[in-house]
């Protein structure tokens, strides 16, 4: 029996974390703007980029 792969579990956990962060109702929280750029735009791309950075870190680091 193969034991659960920790890297795969961490990535899946990231995916699960992404679901509430990138859907409603959390999505309706950011409002107004920052430096002329709408907060929603910054929030969406920011969370997305954060997930990518974390995924890269989890997937590429050496054991």
């Amino acid at each position: 029996m193969k034991r659960a792969n920790p890297t795969r579990q961490r990535l899946a956990a990231l995916g699960l974390l992404g679901v509430p962060l990138l859907t409603y109702p959390l999505l309706s929280l950011p409002s107004g703007e920052l430096g002329g750029i709408p907060a929603t735009y910054l929030y969406l791309f920011g969370v997305w980029a954060g997930l990518i950075v974390l995924a890269a870190w989890v997937a590429e680091r050496r054991k």
């Binding site: 890297t7 795969r8 990535l11 899946a12 990231l14 995916g15 679901v19």
Partner: peptide, 14 residues
């Protein structure tokens, strides 16, 4: 965003 989240379920794809 959908594909980003789906790809994170690497176990399913593997």
């Amino acid at each position: 965003i959908g594909p980003t989240l789906m790809l994170l379920c690497v176990g399913v794809i593997i």
